[in-house]
Design a protein around this nucleic acid. Sequence first.
DNA 1: TGGTTCCGTAACTGATTGGTATCGTATATG
DNA 2: CATATACGATACCAATCAGTTACGGAACCA
Lengths: 209, 209
Amino acid sequence: MPEHDFPPATRGRRRDPERDVAILEATIDLLAEVGYDGLSTAKVADRAQAGKGTMYRRWPTKTDLVLDAVAHMKAQQIDLDALPDTGSLRGDLLALFQPQDRAQVDRILRAMAGVVSMISQAPGLAETGDYSIFEPWIAANTILMERAMTRGEIPATADIALAAQIIPSMAAYRALILRVAIDRDLLTRLVDQVVLPALNESPTNLACC
Amino acid sequence: MPEHDFPPATRGRRRDPERDVAILEATIDLLAEVGYDGLSTAKVADRAQAGKGTMYRRWPTKTDLVLDAVAHMKAQQIDLDALPDTGSLRGDLLALFQPQDRAQVDRILRAMAGVVSMISQAPGLAETGDYSIFEPWIAANTILMERAMTRGEIPATADIALAAQIIPSMAAYRALILRVAIDRDLLTRLVDQVVLPALNESPTNLACC
DNA sequence: TGGTTCCGTAACTGATTGGTATCGTATATG
DNA sequence: CATATACGATACCAATCAGTTACGGAACCA
């Protein structure tokens, strides 16, 4: 996972890949607990039971480490090739946010909040967008909605690009500002009263009901 | 504005209230530029043309200063007693997000992103909620929607609490993650295709259209 | 076995920071 | 004028931190 120079190293002791994941996991943990600036390389090494040398052999800088940890976290997330397929868009949307257990989601969202502070200080990072955990969520929503459209479940004029952002942005707001995870009740209300009506709303007939 | 002990001070030179706003404004500026941790008390004093002593006489700690700066920023924001009243909910919602000029809004949202990092490190702050710039926005939405409900413009069963969060949370997502302000086109689509349909949707007739 | 690379521990360095104290000056009361 | 407070500037202190280096031991290969 560490992207920088990898000397062939066919000679001595092999680099232990288990140390990589231990360090990355510790980084995510601390990111969720204390944020980017509260996170010190010493604390990461401590929690991962690793030496700072081992860390710096893999990631040349703290920023690189955190960015890689976010990428690692992202990779564990939604698999766009194995999305739910319940037959109805409503079932798919509800299923998409169900499988992961609450604590796991909470950890991820808090880590994301920690990353936001890093972006504030390194303005260049904002453009890459590589850090956003919400982007794959939006992509998953989009795919589910496109499927529903080809099934004829929603009109061809539906504004999928907009609707796909509703739930993830609400999740982001709650995680980053309110510091609470989305619950099942809120999710149901969002799907039934906001997302599905928005998709069934044709841009031209605003007073359809 | 500084909340801590204010000795009567009837004897010597008076405390200059202009210094308060200069320091608070400098704090918000830096918060927007470099975030909470990138912000040093020395830099604030420097930009405000103030001595550090002058700052610490008013706010005992960096956290107090930033919290007060956010409150100051919040006070300049939406005036809940002077909300738009165009006669229609659609007009009101569009008018609510229009008056402020782009640069001002951008500064505020970037400052909010800077505050998020502070919350990550001081978990106690999350509970108070005093820091959130989006809360008055939600309150304003709620009031406009309640007005529309008493006018009979939307059904009495509408889920206002939910609908009032849609636009602010989308704004928060864009500001904090995407680092872009909401534009007029997106706002119109949100109002017409998402918020208004959601309000007109009765919880019971999910297939009304 | 010997050379090479990895590992964790720990000491170290240079820079930055929150917060305090001091100083000379300005502004107020009595 | 005497006293008291506020002001900006500056020096200062203790703590923290990113990143480096040194060390002794472990794993691998020839």
